[in-house]
Design a protein around this nucleic acid. Structure first.
Lengths: 229, 229
DNA sequence: CAGTGGTCTAGACCACTGA
DNA sequence: CAGTGGTCTAGACCACTGT
């Protein structure tokens, strides 16, 4: 009932953690392991492929498979829609539009996204609340070159986030996480003290190499982003 | 030369982004797609399986495969060793031990890690520098119940990080990212102003359900953690 | 019950790469 | 050149689950 490739994978991982196959050492090849576990090579292959993807082992043709010296540690973070994140906390989601303008892309934004000179962007600033308390401030710029429709969308009732996921369901992005200090304006908007440390994410998004949007999400004080791996 | 399953995967993704298969809609089953692409079902299966892992589609037996309504966005962050992170920036890595003690685990730590009452921990505080400038402050607690060897290891020349990766090569962890305000002590250690917003990570690590270590990493001002996805 | 994905197999050919 | 992993196939059985 437990899939064979899982058994093989678990046993290999076990041999590694128990030190039977030390970091840097060579492991048996697929054919030999298939004999050991009395299964097809494809089954061993799947187990090993997954371990390689997870950064535990390193595979090369001809030279074979080795246990990684410094296992590549990586963590996956889910990127939820704010609405969902808030509702998952059993809180009531709320939305307020603060500001919306059409303007030429400022230089710093053109640099980040690689926009053409004179390109127009829709700049939207809005607040997402949880139980009527500020939760996340969204400061977003959308390229009208890439998404002309964005010029006329109504963001007074729901955020650009929700519109974008339907308009541009799939894209590539670069995300940064950092800490910022609350200035007077942020302190007022997020109901915190001036100077408080706030968690911020920045994200630039492209589709087919064309810049779509840049967004800053600033969370209320004390926010943590958590994951397990 | 390009693997067939990659071609299939790319084409399916294309059909989704182009709207041929809209979010929420049903996709053809594996057999049908195998005929379409004139390949084996296993090949289609691999393409679809990867798309499912990436959160693009959703698969269920009997009811088939659908495009996800709200594609699960997720980002992977690599977790490098500090030394490597600094050297990758062409800077010279340096290490200084600030403090090291053996003490009973404080209550908050016992709570986080689920340690037994009276359990001893090794508490190490140290600084990682880049070109002799503070880069990352490491505040770490290691459970001596889990790792008795940690009591006598010499951390004056290299950090607990480097020792742990060899002593406990594989483990599970929970990581949080947040922003903290520099107090007087942090300001001195990290050469920043009191009140500055600093980026901090917290990580609890277990192996076979047994708590190993808890660590806080506080970065110098302006640090960003970046990834692409 | 029946349709769909999940897994496995035995065998094959190929691409890459170290010796 | 030869060994190893990468991929593919045709077919099979099975587990799950909607109807």
């Amino acid at each position: 009932m437990t899939a064979m490739y899982r058994v093989v994978k678990a046993d290999i991982l076990d041999k590694i953690t128990q030190g039977v196959w030390a970091p840097g050492s060579q492991m048996p090849n697929e054919m030999r392991l298939a004999e050991t576990y009395d299964c097809a090579r494809a089954t061993v292959n799947r187990a090993m492929r997954e371990l390689a993807e997870e950064g535990i082992i390193e595979r090369r043709r001809k030279s074979g498979t080795r246990v990684r010296m410094n296992p590549v540690r990586q963590a996956r973070f889910g990127i939820p829609l704010v609405r969902k994140e808030i509702e998952d906390q059993q809180a009531v989601y709320g939305y307020t539009l603060i500001n919306s303008t059409i303007e030429p892309a400022p230089d710093w934004l053109r640099g980040r996204l690689g926009l053409a000179v004179g390109g127009l962007v829709r700049h939207v600033c809005c607040m997402h609340t949880a139980d009527d308390m500020p939760f996340q401030l969204e400061d977003r710029w959308i390229s009208l070159d890439a998404l002309p429709d964005a010029e006329t969308v109504d963001f007074s009732q729901s955020g650009p986030n929700e519109w974008l996921v339907t308009a541009v369901p799939f894209s590539n992005a670069e995300m940064s996480l950092l800490a910022v200090q609350a200035d007077a304006k942020l302190a007022t908007l997020l109901h915190c003290a001036k100077g408080d440390a706030l968690f911020q994410t920045e994200r630039s998004t492209w589709m087919d190499g064309q810049a779509i949007t840049y967004v800053r999400l600033i969370f209320r004080g004390g926010h943590k982003m958590t994951t397990q791996y």
